[in-house]
């Protein structure tokens, strides 16, 4: 058991951090709210890292944490974490997998039915399809009488996608009435499904931990700068204790994401449980970071002028994506009560 990052992983984290600080400043996230096209140049830089989708989950999560830290818009999560993850667990067509790993094509997945839970269903309407408008492939996961099947379709953008708006604009969600498009050519075994969904849970948890860390860092910085009663508000014990608690919940979520990603790479028997724990822990971290983050910012945190809300919105949407915290707690209780 060794939780220390390798020097390659340290390098990956630093590279991602530097790249994203430059390529994805808050101004970009802000302009993306009204101008979808600004994500394209960012994706042009990030596509070089698309191969992370087929490699170590630990490396992928290191990268995703940095994407969450800057609330990066664009198809990286949908294509590299979700679409590639599904293709790899299905052992799908190698040309498609290669093109995805090379960042040449962009894919997304359609899993949740109208009820919003990411569990394969026979619902013909699929929802919460991430960034479908900028994907050129869509993998449709559908439950049939003879098991789960996956259909890979091209050009989802040409289909009748209905936007599903959330508080967050950095990722876009769509609903799609699939009608008669379900061909179901690739069978998806329970093992393949579980490999995919576990990896997806820890992936969104990594992204969310990054956003929670950003909220925390901004808040800590603000507490050191902002003065009231002639001293920094960060010298008041009430504020210090909130920050101590915030950092604790963020740090333990980070550690649980790290552990879960290690179980994915090791194909450990503990994988499914660990990934639910990671998502639930990250959800708690995100919630606490945004609640206390806003509180410690005072009035300025309540405005759209300040950047804080960009990350608060991303954190909220991530909390509900791929199963809200309560759903993951229910899966954990299924396991421990079994």
């Amino acid at each position: 058991m060794d939780f220390s990052l390798t020097s390659e992983q340290d390098l990956l984290a630093t590279t991602a951090r530097n790249l994203l600080a430059k390529q994805c400043p808050p101004a970009l996230v802000r302009s993306h709210v009204t101008d979808r096209s600004v994500q394209a140049p960012l994706w042009a830089c990030l596509r070089d890292y698309a191969e992370l989708g087929r490699n170590n989950c630990t490396d992928l999560c290191i990268f995703l944490e940095e994407l969450g830290y800057v609330a990066a818009p664009g198809p990286f999560f949908a294509s590299v974490a979700l679409f590639a993850g599904l293709l790899e667990s299905l052992d799908a067509d190698s040309a498609l997998r290669d093109a995805t790993a090379a960042g040449e094509i962009v894919g997304t997945v359609a899993v949740a039915g109208l009820n919003g839970f990411w569990v394969p269903s026979d619902d013909l309407v699929k929802s919460f399809i991430v960034d479908a408008d900028i994907a050129d492939h869509i993998a449709l996961v559908h439950a049939t009488d003879s098991g789960v099947v996956v259909t890979v379709l091209t050009n989802p953008g040409e289909r009748a996608l209905t936007p599903v708006s959330t508080v967050d604009q950095s990722r876009r969600f769509f609903e799609w009435d699939t009608g008669d498009e379900i061909g179901g050519i690739i069978p998806c075994s329970p093992e393949a499904w579980s490999a995919f969904i576990d990896r997806s849970h820890v992936a969104i948890a990594a992204d969310m931990v990054g956003t929670a860390r950003r909220l925390f860092d901004m808040t800590l910085h603000y507490a050191k700068e902002r003065e009231q009663f002639g001293k920094p508000i960060g010298s008041f014990q009430a504020i210090q204790h909130k920050l101590a608690d915030m950092s604790l919940v963020v740090e333990r979520a980070r550690a649980s994401v790290q552990y879960a990603s290690m179980t994915v790479d090791a194909g450990s028997a503990d994988r499914t449980r660990a990934c639910h724990v990671a998502k639930a822990a990250a959800g708690r971290a995100a919630r606490s970071a945004l609640l206390e983050g806003i509180q410690i910012h005072g009035g300025i945190g309540y405005t759209e002028e300040h950047d804080l809300h960009l990350f608060m919105r991303r954190a909220t949407a991530s909390e509900y994506l791929l199963g809200p915290t309560s759903w993951h707690l229910d899966r954990i209780s299924d396991e421990i009560f079994a």
Partner: peptide
């Protein structure tokens, strides 16, 4: 069930945090 699961989540993430601290 949820309260117990939340306690499990806490214990489990603390274990990971402990491992991480141990590594450094």
């Amino acid at each position: 069930r949820r309260k117990i699961a939340a306690m499990h989540e806490l214990a489990s993430s603390l274990r990971s945090l402990g491992y991480k601290g141990f590594a450094s």
